[in-house]
């Protein structure tokens, strides 16, 4: 039901930075809504961490990073909802700056 993951990369800055942790809720993952932050098992990129931008008519999710250079649904398209590994409940952030 709960899972802890470590964030790597910069695409969710400033909300999550490289090295932060997130507590995921891994049950009922199909109930995500836009603006939820999710971890998704992408077939080639592995476990990725993004924000849900939109749910398509077919129920697929479009995800986005917060950083302008993020690799997300703008390049790889919408993802089937069964790839969602969990929804972020809280972030455990390192002190920055």
């Amino acid at each position: 039901m709960l899972k802890i993951i470590r964030i790597t990369g910069k695409s969710m800055e400033p909300l999550y930075r490289d090295g932060d942790y997130a507590l995921l809720w891994t049950a009922r993952t199909r109930r995500v809504r836009p603006r939820h932050i999710v971890a998704v098992r992408h077939p080639t990129l592995g476990l990725i961490f993004k924000r849900v931008e939109r749910i398509t008519d077919s129920g697929h999710i479009e995800v986005r990073g917060l950083h302008p250079h993020s690799t997300d649904s703008r390049s790889f398209g919408a993802l089937p909802p069964d790839l969602i590994a969990g929804k972020a409940l809280i972030g455990i952030r390192a002190r920055h700056g």
Partner: peptide, 16 residues
């Protein structure tokens, strides 16, 4: 805990 248990990493992947 991460050092002990090794949490799974999730990539907030950037093109660059």
């Amino acid at each position: 805990l991460d050092g002990k248990l090794g949490f799974e990493k999730a990539s907030a992947h950037c093109d660059i």
